[in-house]
Design a protein around this nucleic acid. Structure first.
Length: 821
DNA sequence: TCCTCCCGCCAAGCA
DNA sequence: TGCTTGGCGGGAGGA
């Protein structure tokens, strides 16, 4: 019922006239501040104008209306209480939802324009707001604090704030992202997730020390408010409770989104990180609960700002509340100019402050010389780290620069991103950045907008922001992952840059079948299967017969009983052509959350014959031609994975273990000697289990080091599936996310031209339950004949070909769904 | 039952 | 000393 000031209050005249007593930096007297509580009618408009014209009339009116309205409210309340029974009175009260912080924030935001004219400052009077919104002052502080964290408002004086709107938002987000990267939030998230899984499988194991040391090493216990050039920070208790302030929490929370890929953060993880930075040692439940409460407060405000959106992440451990970033994309370049621009006006001349760390951070976050706030510690840390790195580079010019995942992520794709730093740091960084950039360029990290799609002939390359250099086989580190059911461990090759983050357990991979061969490759693949994202919004947009939706609902019960070919047929039938565009669109929409949900892991493509032509495809594949007919697909997002769309199945390894490696398979092929596997055939499983494709083969061969990078081996025509133990088969396959049946073993052989040997590999899809020590068979997997420490496990295949080494790659399945409320 | 988060106590800090 | 600011956690509504 209140007048939205948005339309009229932006006028400086009206504002100043309505709040004549509100001089900057002074606390206005409370009663005089109270504005008339009239609805927005022509009459009230007239009153407002009259009031504006005459301060006397205005104050008289205000006093009268204040007493009127307050007595009216009291009277009405009294009457209600008298005339209504207790229950009825309670019912007449606004419901909890109507009083929610989110709704309140909406009302609050409606009062002010998103982009106020810079020349006309909008002032916020807390008393006025509390009065008009009929809300306790305490609640307004919650909102204002979060808005302050985004520099949408800033405090002028007691009771008085300035409304900046969204003008500062891009800059703020830039700064927050940067600080988030510098604080290594990605690593922290990974550490927490890793610990979660370790705890899940070994609840008795206490790894707090590791955790604590991890946080301790990040030296960020005293992280404080991130300021923005030109936006002054005058918190009431600057030196007191600032570290626990909702402002700081809000900023950290936002940072987590900005550094995450995809930008989904669960409350649990956020709370742990926020606690972890304070004091990890007393990580007790009440503290955790308190943090969660505060995060809800913050999240409500951020949601009202449409910066985040609530989702649910469903993992094996259950459904977790999480939030997804829906705010503006934070581009690496936009801040340079702004920061530099503000630097020129707000900070000392750059030439004066080249060597000082403090001045460096000043250049990053100048604030008109005011000293009554804290500089962000990470800025100093950043410079320190830069200097250290630089020293290392200079002292060991031929040594490769160790670049962490987060560094990679924060590094620009293009050299001009260096300009994110002010000129002063630019100079300091130059030495290091060049090296990093060179590596970066070599890695061919691609940005979908700017980097052309790679040619199929390119060498294995990377994509995703969180990239590492293409894994040459020699630099890959095997990580052994135990698996209890089989008594066998599985293993993954990791890029060395990631190997240090890996311990003994990976919580599992996700296998993704491609639901429809002509749906665009990886994107569809990922978005459809890896993570199921359902939004009310999205659901509403879809028609009742939307295949995307109906499939999700239909597939689950069918999974257990239908063969994959039947499912494929159904899919193809359920996907009329005119729906494909829609579907593709929805795929693209959900890509940001699904494709990169795990920002890491090998993309292991496996053949999946779909679209009703499985039989045909199988036949062809057996004849060795199937893979040739596949159309090559290159993801416009990842840009580096040309592979047959119908082969796309990805195995994603959770972020806290492995950096993403998207392998581009070269079309250059060499002939490989087909070798028959000696595995016994199981017809039932053959019909439903997927075949490893040439892509899978090549991926593995290249990265295990049996064929050179850039060389491709066609799919082995004899790819067989062996039955698995009943134990494995008994695991129910509840997820509709994949049609790869748990427990299935895919076995295939190949000939390595490098080693001149035949190799047999098995892929088994299992659900991990408990950790187990790595066992010998996994080691075999990595042995190459004639390796330094091994005796080749030579055995004879059924056809007499020699099997020189054998191993099993166990790939446990992991369900992970994201759903939005 | 658990998630969500309103509500208000009360302490720190400011004028 | 009174007021503002805001940390904090109990406990209730809602799913």
């Amino acid at each position: 019922l209140k007048t939205p000031l948005k339309q009229v209050a932006t006028s400086q005249l009206v504002l100043t006239e309505r709040q004549p007593d509100c001089q900057p930096l002074t606390t206005p007297p409370k009663p005089k501040e109270t504005p008339p509580a009239d609805p927005w009618t022509p009459t009230s408009n007239l009153k407002m104008l009259i009031s504006a014209a005459s301060p006397e009339i205005r104050s008289r009116e205000q006093r009268r209306q204040l007493s009127d309205s307050s007595s009216e409210v009291l009277q009405t309340k009294h009457c209600l209480q008298e005339h209504l029974l207790g229950d009825e009175y309670e019912k007449s009260q606004p419901s909890r939802k109507e009083k929610s912080l989110g709704l309140l924030c909406h009302k609050f935001l409606a009062r002010y324009p998103d982009y106020p004219s810079p020349s006309q400052k909008s002032y916020i009077c807390l008393d006025e707001v509390t009065e008009e919104l009929h809300v306790e002052r305490r609640r307004i502080y919650d909102i204002v604090n979060v808005l302050e964290s985004l520099h949408m408002v800033s405090r002028l004086a007691r009771n008085r704030y300035v409304w900046h709107g969204r003008h500062n938002l891009p800059q703020t987000l830039q700064a927050l992202k940067k600080v988030g990267e510098e604080n290594k939030y990605i690593q922290q998230i990974q550490m927490i997730k890793k610990r979660e899984y370790e705890h899940e499988f070994d609840p008795d194991s206490e790894r707090n020390e590791e955790m604590a040391s991890s946080f301790g090493s990040s030296e960020q216990s005293e992280m404080s408010f991130v300021e923005l050039p030109g936006v002054e920070f005058r918190a009431a208790s600057v030196n007191g409770r600032k570290y626990k302030s909702l402002r700081v929490m809000s900023q950290k929370f936002v940072m987590l989104f900005l550094v995450s890929t995809p930008q989904i953060v669960s409350l649990e993880v956020a709370a742990k990180i926020l606690i972890g930075e304070d004091q990890l040692e007393d990580l007790d439940k009440s503290k955790f609960k308190t943090k969660i409460r505060r995060l809800y407060d913050i999240a409500n405000v951020l949601s009202s700002l449409k910066l985040i959106k609530k989702v649910h992440v469903t993992e094996e451990r259950g459904r977790k509340p999480a939030f997804k970033w829906t705010g503006p994309e934070v581009l690496p370049n936009t801040q340079d100019t702004k920061l530099e621009a503000t630097s020129t006006t707000c900070s000392p001349p750059i030439s004066e402050s080249i060597t000082s760390k403090e001045q460096c951070s000043k250049a990053l976050f100048p604030s008109k010389g005011k000293q009554n706030f804290t500089r962000h510690s990470s800025l100093i840390k950043l410079v320190k780290s830069i200097e250290n790195d630089r020293r290392k580079i200079q002292s060991a010019p031929t040594s490769p620069v160790k670049i962490s995942a987060s560094t990679y992520q924060s590094l620009p794709v293009f050299p001009n991103t260096i300009a994110q730093f002010p000129a002063i740091t630019k100079q300091q960084l130059e030495g290091q950045s060049k090296t990093a950039e060179e590596m970066q360029m070599k890695c061919a990290l691609s940005s979908p907008e700017a980097v052309p799609k790679p040619e199929p002939s390119q060498q294995p390359a990377l994509s995703q922001p969180l990239g590492v250099c293409p894994a040459s086989h020699s630099s890959m580190s095997p990580v052994i992952l135990p698996h209890p059911q089989s008594g066998v461990s599985y293993a993954i090759y990791l890029h060395p840059s990631q190997a240090h983050t890996v311990t003994t357990y990976s919580p599992g991979f996700m296998l993704q079948p491609l639901p429809c061969a002509n749906v665009t490759g990886i994107k569809s693949n990922n978005s459809k299967i890896l993570n199921k994202i359902t939004t009310e919004e999205g659901d509403n947009q879809r028609g009742p017969d939307d295949p995307t939706k109906s499939l999700a609902a239909e597939e689950r019960p069918e999974m257990k009983s239908e063969t994959s070919s039947q499912r494929c047929l159904k899919r193809s039938q359920a996907l009329p052509e005119n729906n494909l565009i829609k579907r593709r669109k929805s795929d693209e929409e959900s890509l940001d959350t699904s494709l990169t949900f795990f920002p890491s892991g090998y993309l292991i493509p496996l053949t999946h014959c779909t679209h009703g032509n499985k039989a045909e495809c199988s036949t062809k594949e057996k004849a060795g031609v199937c893979s040739v007919q596949h159309t090559t697909y290159s993801s416009p997002i990842t840009g580096v994975i040309p592979m047959p769309a119908s082969e796309l199945k990805t195995v994603n390894i959770p972020a806290f273990h492995i950096t993403p490696l998207n392998i581009m398979l070269s079309p250059n092929s060499i002939a490989a000697a087909p070798v028959l596997s000696n595995s016994c055939l199981n017809t039932s499983s053959t019909s439903s289990a997927p075949n490893p494709s040439s892509s899978a083969l090549n991926f593995m061969l290249q990265h295990i080091g049996l064929i050179p990078a850039g060389v491709q081996v066609p799919a082995n025509p004899v790819l067989q599936h062996v039955p698995v133990s009943s134990q494995s088969e008994n695991i129910s396959h509840s997820s509709g996310s994949t049609n790869v049946q748990e427990g299935k073993v895919i076995e295939f052989t190949f000939y390595s031209p490098i080693n001149e040997s035949n190799f047999l590999f098995s892929l088994q899809f299992l659900q991990p339950k408990e950790p187990q020590e790595p066992q010998a068979i996994t080691e075999n997997f990595f042995r190459t004949p004639g390796g330094p420490n091994t005796e080749p496990a030579v055995s004879a295949n059924s056809d007499g070909t020699q099997r020189t080494s054998q191993g099993t790659l166990y790939i446990p399945q992991r369900k992970l769904e994201v759903s939005e409320d």
